[in-house]
Design a protein around this nucleic acid. Structure first.
Lengths: 140, 140
DNA sequence: CAGCATCCGTTCTGATACTG
DNA sequence: CAGTATCAGAACGGATGCTG
């Protein structure tokens, strides 16, 4: 399912070729998929405030199911964005914290969350306006 | 045009309440879902370079199907991030361009794409290492 | 050209139940 | 506490055919 990427020699500054015909997405997809998935951003934002245990995370990220939290932190761990530490206590205790790489993402992620908050109302209004202009148009 | 955010009671710096128990995600989800979906970012990046017609977009965003492009631009239009203009020519001609709001997102999106490129290799290595440490663990 | 409608397999998610 | 396992429903995504 994942898109295979071919070696592309494009500098970070020049994003144009990426995703264009002949430049099969560079592999940004891989990273974007992670950043873009339903819960990663919220988890990262929470961890930006410090290490958290599993339950703490679940309580902090409202609405996330146990299963999804597990999957999310596992993926983040696999990508090297989050460090998982198991303490051999009884009952088991595990905490999660951002790695340096993960931390380097936080300001971007926060900026994104920030932008979201700042434009939330405007977007909500835009949606209402659109829906009013296009009655009976289910775009979701 | 700098990214100005409209009156937010909780300062942008303090994102903590969002997504926490009792603060049902504030609605960041709505916005994040858009930003985070499979194609939006790529479309936005492409439109950041100027107005594009439907076909141009499809060619530029490698791999996107007609259906997905349609859905993606519709959603972006609905959210007020993209402006759709129809020219009554024959055959029909339509172009898409970013609105100011949409444009204000490009910095963030580009920064994100940038970060992705910059950390692509590191993440790939982290994944390999993880997979080596956890044989037979299909995380996706 | 720029779509919309439909079919249909794949993936994602959440709820539920159980374990070390 | 911190998971794993399973299962069914929802959402996603592509292919195909048709229209103005």
């Amino acid at each position: 399912m994942s898109v295979t990427h071919t070696e592309v020699t494009a500098g970070p500054a020049d994003l144009d070729p990426c995703g264009q015909a002949g430049y099969p997405d560079c592999g940004i997809r891989d990273v974007l998929d992670r950043v873009g998935d339903k819960w990663s951003v919220l988890v990262i934002v929470e961890l930006a405030n410090g290490a958290r245990r599993f339950r703490e995370l679940q309580r902090a990220v409202d609405g996330i199911s146990q299963r999804m939290l597990t999957l999310t932190v596992r993926r983040l761990e696999r990508d090297g964005l989050v460090l998982r530490t198991v303490y051999p206590t009884v009952p088991a205790q595990v905490d999660y914290r951002l790695t340096e790489t993960g931390a380097s993402l936080t300001h971007l992620v926060k900026a994104l969350a920030d932008w979201s908050l700042g434009h939330r109302d405007g977007i909500a209004r835009a949606r209402q306006a659109y829906d009013a202009r296009h009655p009976g148009n289910e775009i979701r």
